[in-house]
Design a protein around this nucleic acid. Structure first.
Lengths: 249, 249
DNA sequence: AATTTGCCTTGATACAGATCAAAGAATCAT
DNA sequence: ATGATTCTTTGATCTGTATCAAGGCAAATT
């Protein structure tokens, strides 16, 4: 009954742009109705199971895409196997870049992922003709750049404890549904090993720091993949980040 | 005769866009003659001495700019003083982003810098009206993003020796004037401390690794700020990067 | 139910790089 | 020139995190 994991049926029937959950945040955010009709005719949906590689480094890039649902990661691997995640793609984030026919990292689905794909060369043409899209793509790229820079500070200067605190705080912020009601159960989609690759640590250190925060009453685990934040103020304090935006009076 | 360091005369007479050294690579790369005339009427030049802070984190952003000459760095500092450089700006690189009125890092001139500045709000308007510029800005952002991701791998996973090798190799590649004639003298514009902040190390470790590479005959110092690469192959090997682009056959 | 497999935790130990310290160049100011 | 300051090197020691190793738990498979 269950499908074999690597079965190759990535294509899925797309939903209407007008009903698309990422309509107002993705690369198409600024498009008017005419432009949407055009995009609608170009797009195809593809799905990937958790763990599947979406794109290999160096592989010719046939399509660019927006993440519709799920989470994907960008990662780089050294010859001896050391790997570092260099990006996290959430719904509305964009994969690929116009003007380059390959990428320099692997893209992997960490949970089931659905992508809204466009043929790369056709999309490039569209970018050149459609200012809205180029502008939105610019904004998305600049947002990712901001995130990458925060991550560089984390990787270069934060201690293991600060890294884990920052990571937990990020998850807490993301999964709080608008409100900052703290004691929701947070899902830790990734394995300890993936978290380690994200934070520039080993999986053992990740495990130890989680245990330490649990012992200190900052978080509580309901099971290995789910936890609650018990003391948000303490967590914030441990991240090493400024409480405010860094504005000094 | 010499001017006091902090004297506030940043404004300088701009040169013509048509003669501008970064004309074909900066944000204005794709602009046609009409657009250039418009930009010409908007732009002002500002100069900063080595060591000057160009923009403070959180400060309201009055202008955006292209680097015309010199080198500037982007850096983030934690409350306790730990700092991490998160970007290096070379001629043609862009400072600031349309749609945001402050930035989350400090921008500092490491050597004397000249900027081609545009009033931020006027520039934003121009971006909205001029697809060329949004496209070019997107490309610049994506290039920076690629660089940031390489840097994340370095910060998260490379050893001190690999970090220094990567840094030296980058300088060597940049300062080789087109040719790969190796034994040019390379200028190490930055202090050991700045290099440490760039690589996520301490200045002592930077110094030790330089000494180690010198002892191993990989590089030779002519003075503390100038060196030559004696063994490029060995240097490449030490970076930990794939020799090729990662293409496996 | 028993077994396998993958993931996680915890302990013991090693080591790379940080920290502390001091002295040696180079640059700057007088 | 002379002294002051800043930057750099090198040494000694410490420590946070990696590494090595073993066992535990839970889900998947038989």
């Amino acid at each position: 009954m269950s499908q074999p994991k690597k079965m190759n049926i990535p294509l899925v029937a797309p939903i209407k742009c007008s009903q698309c959950p990422i309509r107002h945040r993705a690369v198409c955010a600024r498009c008017d109705d005419d432009e949407l009709i055009l995009l609608e005719s170009m797009k195809t949906y593809r799905s990937f199971a958790a763990g599947d590689v979406i794109l290999w480094r160096g592989e010719p890039l046939e399509f660019v895409a927006s993440v519709v649902s799920g989470v994907a990661t960008l990662s780089k691997t050294m010859e001896d196997g050391r790997t570092q995640m260099v990006g996290l793609l959430l719904p509305s984030d964009f994969i690929g870049r116009p003007g380059r026919e390959q990428i320099d990292f692997d893209v992997t689905a960490t949970v089931d992922v659905t992508l809204c794909c466009f043929d790369r060369t056709r999309f490039e043409k569209l970018v050149n003709e459609t200012p809205h899209i180029a502008q939105r793509l610019m904004e998305l790229a600049l947002d990712e750049l901001d995130a990458a820079r925060d991550w560089m500070l984390l990787l270069g200067r934060k201690t293991a404890r600060e890294k884990i605190a920052t990571f937990i705080e990020m998850l807490a912020r993301r999964s709080s549904h608008g409100l900052d009601g703290s004691s929701d159960v947070i899902d830790l989609h990734m394995t300890r090993d993936q978290i380690a690759n994200y934070l520039g640590l080993t999986l053992e250190t990740v495990s130890r720091q989680f245990s330490a925060f649990k012992k200190d009453g900052v978080i509580g685990f309901t099971d290995r993949k789910h936890f609650t934040v018990e003391d948000m103020a303490a967590l914030q304090e441990e991240t090493g980040d400024d409480a405010d935006g860094g504005v000094v009076y």
